[in-house]
Simulated scan of single mutants.
Amino acid sequence: MPLASALSQPRPLALLDVLARAVAQLRQARAQHRAYVALMAEFDRMTDADWFDLGLSRHNARDLARHTVYGR
Results as ranks from 00 to 15, higher is better:
Ala6Tyr: 08
Leu39Arg: 13
Leu64Trp: 02
Ala41Gln: 14
Arg58Gly: 02
Ala14Gly: 08
Asp63Trp: 03
Val18His: 04
Leu39Val: 09
Val18Cys: 10
Ala29Gln: 13
Arg66Val: 09
Val23Phe: 05
Ala31Trp: 00
Leu19His: 08
Ala24Thr: 07
Leu16Gln: 13
Ala61Gln: 01
Ala24His: 02
Asp48Arg: 13
Arg27Asn: 12
Asp44Ile: 02
Glu42Thr: 08
Asp63Gly: 08
Arg34Trp: 03
Ser5Trp: 09
Asp50Gly: 11
Pro10Lys: 08
Arg66Tyr: 10
Val23Trp: 04
Asp53Ala: 15
Ala4Ile: 08
Asp48His: 10
Val37Tyr: 00
Ala14Met: 09
Arg45Thr: 11
Leu15Met: 09
Ser57Thr: 03
Asp53Val: 07
Leu16Pro: 01
Arg45Pro: 01
Asp48Cys: 05
Asp53Glu: 14
Leu13Gln: 14
Tyr70His: 13
Glu42Val: 04
Gly71Gln: 07
Ser5Thr: 10
Ala20Pro: 00
Arg30Leu: 10
Pro2Ile: 03
Gly71Leu: 01
Asp50Arg: 12
Leu3Lys: 14
Met46Gln: 15
Leu3Asp: 12
Leu13Lys: 14
Leu26Pro: 01
Ala61Glu: 01
Glu42Ala: 12
Met40Pro: 01
Leu39Ser: 06
Arg34His: 08
Gly71Val: 01
Gly55Tyr: 06
Ala29Arg: 12
Asp44Arg: 13
Met40Ile: 11
Leu16Tyr: 06
Met46Pro: 04
Phe52Lys: 15
Leu64Ser: 03
His67Met: 08
Ser57Pro: 02
Gln28Glu: 14
Leu26Thr: 12
Val23Leu: 08
His59Gly: 06
Asp53Gly: 10
Val18Gly: 03
Thr47Lys: 12
Leu19Gly: 01
Leu16Ser: 14
Arg66Glu: 12
Tyr36His: 15
Arg58Tyr: 01
Ala38Val: 05
Ala38Cys: 06
Pro12Asp: 12
Leu39Trp: 05
Arg62His: 11
Phe52Met: 11
Gly55Lys: 06
Ala24Glu: 11
Val37Gly: 02
Asp48Ile: 01
Leu13Ser: 14
Leu15His: 07
Leu19Phe: 04
Ala38His: 10
Leu19Asn: 10
His67Phe: 07
Gln25Trp: 04
Pro10Asn: 06
Arg34Cys: 06
Gln32Glu: 14
Ser8Met: 09
Pro10Trp: 05
Asn60Arg: 03
Arg45Tyr: 01
Val37Pro: 02
Thr47Phe: 12
Asp53Cys: 10
Ser57Trp: 00
Ala41His: 07
Ala22His: 09
Ala49Thr: 11
Leu15Pro: 00
Gln9Asn: 09
Gln25Leu: 11
Arg27Leu: 07
Ala38Asp: 15
Val69Leu: 08
Pro12Tyr: 05
Leu16Arg: 12
Leu15Asn: 13
Leu16Asp: 15
Gln28Val: 03
Val37Cys: 07
Arg45Ile: 02
Asn60Glu: 03
Gln9Phe: 06
Ser57Cys: 02
Asp48Thr: 06
Ala20Gln: 10
Leu7Arg: 13
Arg62Asp: 02
